[in-house]
Write a protein that binds this DNA or RNA. Sequence first.
DNA 1: GATGAATGAGCTTTCATTCAT
DNA 2: AATGAATGAAAGCTCATTCAT
Lengths: 195, 195, 195, 195
Amino acid sequence: MTSKKQLKKELIIQSALELFASKGFYSTTIPDIASSVKISVGSMYNYFTSKDVLAKEIIKYISLYLGNKLQNINEEKISTEEKTKKIVEVYFKTASLKPEMIDYFLRIYLSNREVFKNGCEGMICVNEFVTEIMIYFEEGVRCGDLRDQDFFSAFGLFMGYLGGMVFLKGEEILPKALDTYIDDISYNIYKALSK
Amino acid sequence: MTSKKQLKKELIIQSALELFASKGFYSTTIPDIASSVKISVGSMYNYFTSKDVLAKEIIKYISLYLGNKLQNINEEKISTEEKTKKIVEVYFKTASLKPEMIDYFLRIYLSNREVFKNGCEGMICVNEFVTEIMIYFEEGVRCGDLRDQDFFSAFGLFMGYLGGMVFLKGEEILPKALDTYIDDISYNIYKALSK
Amino acid sequence: MTSKKQLKKELIIQSALELFASKGFYSTTIPDIASSVKISVGSMYNYFTSKDVLAKEIIKYISLYLGNKLQNINEEKISTEEKTKKIVEVYFKTASLKPEMIDYFLRIYLSNREVFKNGCEGMICVNEFVTEIMIYFEEGVRCGDLRDQDFFSAFGLFMGYLGGMVFLKGEEILPKALDTYIDDISYNIYKALSK
Amino acid sequence: MTSKKQLKKELIIQSALELFASKGFYSTTIPDIASSVKISVGSMYNYFTSKDVLAKEIIKYISLYLGNKLQNINEEKISTEEKTKKIVEVYFKTASLKPEMIDYFLRIYLSNREVFKNGCEGMICVNEFVTEIMIYFEEGVRCGDLRDQDFFSAFGLFMGYLGGMVFLKGEEILPKALDTYIDDISYNIYKALSK
DNA sequence: GATGAATGAGCTTTCATTCAT
DNA sequence: AATGAATGAAAGCTCATTCAT
């Protein structure tokens, strides 16, 4: 594939990501996306063979983006407590600066099973992201900071908590900005997971 | 309204709840629901004036159901730690016995903003449920068990965590049954929230 | 038929007349009419076997009402010119005091052929009204006031003109009240029809 | 828009015009129109965004057509009496050769207020036609042929009369062809409007 | 490769009419 | 005679996808 085509694909992914996240999967039409990228409807299908395929590529794109951020944190030589806080920071910063990413993850990927059923079974499409959380957890256990509990219980706490807060923000229920909760929340999480 | 009509309404709510939760809001059609209740399409509209209205009545129904369960716990004369565990138990038991309820909450209500925008602003439609979590938290603080932090941070932890676990279960990622996590998770939560 | 039933029938006719005239035939539903008369939908069908039948009875009711008014004028011992003016007066007064009648005539009866096709062929359902115009015209000719032209040409002038003015009024295009045109219009008509 | 698309639009307008005029607005369905033009239902909506919009474009189309005819007459150097007759001729000729146009005007446009309410307020959508009648009337007054009465009274006479005759013809009540009334009617009108 | 008109299945919703109570 | 829940055909409209140009 020419890199020109690759660039256009990413352009489409970005636009579709924003539209899906703000209007929902079913309320966003292919013509909506095409016109936001200023290409024709027919052309869209030269890049993505169906609306579902596009949706799946978007979640992989997000997983890669967040996975990279977490990888950088995991590679730093800092305490597990500091890593915990940095992860919360990255998550909330993304939710502030690129809200469509977290929204897509929470509202499109997690909620439209029928769309991602074939091709994203298990955690295939969010593999990079989950892997980094796993590394964070296992290293925390190895170096004696975290309790050696079931990974999924820890993962559920971490991701559920962060996702829940972003949801509350999205519903305009949270009275303060997300950043102001970083200390509280990373403290809660570390307190829950540590020995 | 006659109680007979009221009964039929609840029958429809039950059936629609299951269908929405398993197939998604947009992939479930009014004919789908009608035929699952064995009434005609037209008849549906004698009970609910639109598909959106039905969706809103369902979330209120769920909120009432869960709110009642939590109210019972809140009224018990037990420690905050025990209450915490009981709430986790109720939530997971519901997720096991009536999975459609939690699924609906997570996948339909939280994710289809455009549907609930008008009529369920803020937390109007999940009022009963949220209120009981608030009572749990405030009593925990009053009696000195819980730290007096921002309610929403605590709420996000509690609900995000539980929701996250059910999500993982739904994706068939959790290796064990939900119940087996009850101790771990209520311990994590209490540890995070307590003084 | 008991006179009680007859009274109810007229009540329904009155209500339906107003609804049809203001909202149109197809935009007025049987439930609309039933609830405006405070009876049940099913009951409606004990009085009128279908919506079309109701529509036809209404136009007959209007024809009878206007026919009676014209009959009174025709029986007066006054000049044709005076009769002309009185007819215009009656028509405009009806359009002011019972606008639904003229509106129904113009917008429902004349425009929904498919509804009145069977049962109101020709002028069967507006017989009483047309007959009186015919009497007015023939007496006017007999006594030498009016030219002996084709009746339908005269009828078209008279009724088309009056209907056209009420239409303009209904569209809120006429700058003044209908009554203020009575002299102009009866003058125009008499001028056109007289010898 | 390509001229090819424009041509198709006019084809649809022509077909829809005939169907609406003969069967009524509500009894003509989009599938009816689509199949009469031999295109798919979905395709219809690439040309007109809704049934109402189509209805409004049709009345503008008719107004333009008739407006042009009248403009030609107004530009001729003939007496007001001759103009009067020519207008009647054009109107009746249209009613004979393109009866759907006059029928649409009388039965669809004038009677389905709810359809034309938004977008055709006042006389916006029949502007061209009304303007020419206004020019005819004002020139007639200026050159001393017509009495200087209220324009709407004159307009109501002219249009109401002609419309009334076409109605009678449509109801198959008129014993003779419309053309045979041209002399009578233009005489009546001129007699009514002249000094 | 790009276009955008065409497709048609499928959606939500309406409503005249029926009929068991 | 009165009720109003039930019916189901049919409406307007949408939209992912195709394909001739």
